[in-house]
Design a protein around this nucleic acid. Structure first.
Lengths: 229, 229
DNA sequence: CCAAAAGTGTTTCACGTACACCCATGC
DNA sequence: GCATGGGTGTACGTGAAACACTTTTGG
């Protein structure tokens, strides 16, 4: 069923940079391509946009189809439109980035003809298309954004310890933070809700669990509060 | 000359939000549409992307064709892809924003069948398509970005007084700044080069002119400096 | 009782903020 | 000489940064 237009049209795709956090490192989910071009190379999950879905919906759909991920934080990153970025023909790609915690979304692994896997940021293969550049852009974005918008919580389980929270920031920002100052600061913001639970199954004193209090945060923002780390 | 594809394709456009600054207000350039849909309504300058140009090149080209503006600061803003954003058919638009100073780029006015004009941000008509939303997004973006990246200079003439600089920030951020503290801060950054010129043709003491020192700024950034206002 | 991480305060210093007057110039 | 904006310094308070020991728990 062919479609005909008066002028030549680019194909429109979405690609997703999915970040996940575990105890070692910040990781990214990649898909091994089963088809040319770049057959056998690793690439970002993504695909073409249908005409009856928004860009956001397309990103969410591709993410679920290729990696099994649902209900993760997803936000538009940047649109890549170099003329030769796809060797076959002109393809413009709207890139999104996603954040999720690796515990809950473990080895969601393979789908149809492709294998999916997590890669540490310091242990990346060279990617298909311009996906290296997209990935670099995404890393820069979350490095910047995590400091002034509380999106980092998306990388943690719903309930987390202050040490987990601190380690998450240390991994993303790539520098050490002082424990006492960090706690003073985040607790002082009033956006963490202390639960009455503690860590389970640890071989030392169990840490208290906290939860990000979204409502409190929104209330504070309305009063002019600025999250900043 | 028709083009045929196996799957339906969206049309791909760019739209530009051009900001300019004068003594009164932060302004935006709009184009009066000469064609349906939205004939007679005001809209952002923009048009369709050709297959042999990048998105950035398309934005720059449309900007020049429709407003006469060349060599202005231009950066990608966001991509708008709602299914019904264009009543004719599916059009995805990659929005850019531009900054320029109104003095140098005065009434570049009309081109072909359309009239161009500057509108103060507090005196805007309702726009065609989803251009209200695009404009809102662009305003939010520069309000945020101007505080931690020195892009505000793009709105001023090459040589400017500290008062002009301060007023620029006051207009964008929509709040008053203290003169002494402002000067202390920006001069302390070491990114302003003092020229040996002063304002001309003013009916009072002439102010010293300064220039943004791009190289010094880049040098400082490499050393970990963060612009922040 | 030992290992491992949790949890907790104080001091110091830099920087943001508030604030008012004299100066230079053109008319 | 007067009107208009240009240019300058200090005191105060808040918040960032540096820093080390005691407590709890499981094994």
């Amino acid at each position: 069923m062919p479609y005909t237009y008066e002028y030549a049209r680019a194909a429109l795709a979405v690609d997703c940079v999915v970040f996940g956090l575990d105890d070692e490192d910040l990781k990214v989910m990649l898909i091994e391509r089963g088809q040319p071009p770049f057959k056998g190379r690793w690439a970002l999950p993504g695909g073409f946009v249908r005409l009856d879905e928004t860009l956001f919906e397309a990103a969410r759909r591709e993410l679920e189809e290729e990696t099994g991920l649902k209900r993760v934080f997803l936000e538009q990153l940047y649109t890549f439109g170099d003329v030769k970025r796809d060797p076959r023909e002109r393809v413009v790609s709207v890139a999104y980035y996603a954040l999720c915690n690796l515990r809950d979304h473990k080895v969601q692994g393979a789908t149809d003809a492709s294998a999916a896997a997590w890669f540490g940021l310091h242990d990346l293969p060279s990617l298909a298309f311009d996906h290296d550049e997209i990935l670099r852009t995404a890393v820069e974005r979350i490095r910047g954004k995590v400091r002034y918008v509380p999106i980092g919580f998306e990388l943690l389980p719903r309930k987390f310890t202050l040490t987990q929270l601190q380690k998450m920031y240390e991994k993303i920002l790539d520098r050490q933070l002082d424990k006492r100052n960090f706690r003073k600061k985040v607790l002082g913001m009033g956006i963490l809700e202390e639960t009455d639970e503690v860590q389970q199954d640890v071989a030392h004193r169990a840490a208290r669990l906290y939860r990000f209090d979204e409502l409190a945060y929104k209330r504070l923002v309305k009063q002019g509060f600025n999250f900043e780390l």
